[in-house]
């Protein structure tokens, strides 16, 4: 499965990619460094089956990116992976179309559990 990872931190993109390779060894990771880049990469990779997105990013934040993905009709589930842990933000993201929510910091096991819960495997 192709997975789009959107985060302005190359460190966080690598941490997420390393974790994904552990429990989804056949996954192909597409990286993007903000919401604009993420949407461009999604248009170029319409077969993405899962999107993991940060919230606080320059140029285009994760919530704006999420709304653009939903508006585009793309069916890949979006999981927010963010330090924004306040309940009001979680609710806002879910109401905007996010399928799940991972709060940073996280362990690989937490990420795996949220992805499994979202994808049904």
């Amino acid at each position: 499965m192709k997975v789009l990872v959107v985060d302005d931190s190359s460190t966080m993109r690598r941490i997420i990619s390393n974790a994904l390779k552990q429990f989804m060894p056949d996954s192909v990771i597409v990286e993007a460094e903000d919401g604009n880049d993420g949407f461009d990469k999604l248009q170029a990779n319409l077969d993405c089956g899962l999107i993991l997105s940060d919230w606080n990013m320059p140029n285009c934040d994760g919530l704006t990116f999420l709304k653009k993905v939903i508006a585009s009709g793309h069916k890949a589930p979006v999981i927010m992976v963010t330090t924004e842990a306040e309940k009001s933000n979680v609710v806002m993201a879910i109401k905007s179309g996010a399928k799940n929510y991972v709060t940073k910091p996280f362990t690989p096991d937490i990420l795996k559990a949220k992805i499994s819960q979202t994808m049904g495997f």
Binding site: S9, S10, T11, M12, I15, N56, T83, A85, K104
Partner: peptide, 27 residues
């Protein structure tokens, strides 16, 4: 964090330090 060995400050280390601040402030 990255499963690597670093012996000096480079771009990876700089980016990682930014992310640590982000993680601490966010919580």
């Amino acid at each position: 964090m990255l499963g690597q060995t670093y012996t000096e400050i480079n771009d990876d280390v700089k980016d990682g330090i930014q992310e640590i601040v982000n993680l601490i402030a966010g919580q």
